[in-house]
Nucleic acid binder design. Sequence first.
DNA 1: ACTACTTATTCAACGGATTGCGCAGCAATA
DNA 2: TATTGCTGCGCAATCCGTTGAATAAGTAGT
Lengths: 182, 182
Amino acid sequence: MSLRHAILVLLQDQEASGYDLAREFANSIGLVWNATHQQIYLELGKLNDQNMVKFRHIPQDGKPDKKLYRITEEGRDELIRWLRKPAAPPRIRDAFMVKIAGGALSDSSSILRELDDQADLRRERLHTFEALARKLDEQGRDKDLFTYLTLRRGILDQQAWLHWADEVKTALNKREILSTSA
Amino acid sequence: MSLRHAILVLLQDQEASGYDLAREFANSIGLVWNATHQQIYLELGKLNDQNMVKFRHIPQDGKPDKKLYRITEEGRDELIRWLRKPAAPPRIRDAFMVKIAGGALSDSSSILRELDDQADLRRERLHTFEALARKLDEQGRDKDLFTYLTLRRGILDQQAWLHWADEVKTALNKREILSTSA
DNA sequence: ACTACTTATTCAACGGATTGCGCAGCAATA
DNA sequence: TATTGCTGCGCAATCCGTTGAATAAGTAGT
């Protein structure tokens, strides 16, 4: 139940619209928490009802009107309170891994195909994360240390995954050879 | 929506009660998918209504009666169908990481404290996974190759996490020194 | 000219997940 | 003796999340 807190974190430094936040959830924070725009708008509504955020209405021409949200004192208090108490360990729900665990039922080729698809995705992520980390490093990483550390987490995660994928490949290939030669 | 499939995977090799499954979700499969007993009993009910599983009633003395579930033909078909179509990428929701991203608001000491707690948990997991992997290795890992690969995933994951935690520590310590000497 | 994408917000329906509770008896420990 | 813990099942309320759609106007590409 901490979509609200992720939003409050984002609103710490800047005033933003629901749309802006949705974009950030698709990029930066998406690394550690994801949410769709529907969820975000809903949560912003609740946060507003509870006086954690307030907004001002910005009419625009050429584009639809928007609401720019900013965090309130109460919101900041709530965020700090939340930061202080220990976080619940993340619940793991990885469908692809369930497939691996049940892999005895599938044939190796279809596993390998999906493994490659997932690996492509991870490799892509790895490159974007590395590019962002490099950019931060050039600017002196201390300014945005926590963004940098978050990126490092993502990078190490992708690398570990890709390493695992290699292990799977070699294991399945060895197996393939054994079963065809038998 | 694949708690059902995780259950079907478990029922592949053995007949089991809801209670048995709950235990396995707390251990082996819990590595990749977790669920509480309420969810499991509910899902078993649904699976039974859809003829994916069937059960027999086992009266016991000393202990409460139980229901032993086993997978049906239909259930196996459904599982195979699911295994064939690509899995959606897992959505990430890591509250602790949200805290890191919002870390500028907390003080280093409280972050470090929580980091240590999480690290203890990860180290503990790492040891249990490694012990299980070693046991499988002795028995010749090919028999249970997919369990072995799942464990390897868990091991690499914990190692990557712990490595990251070290990076965070050194980064925050360096920072601490800079701010106190200034 | 038509299609597709971007900006911007919101509603409605459904299903999945969490939290809290309740029952029931046995075994072991403090 | 009281409490905790294990085996075993289940219901109900609520909340969270996903999917799908609607509205509305501008811009860019085929």
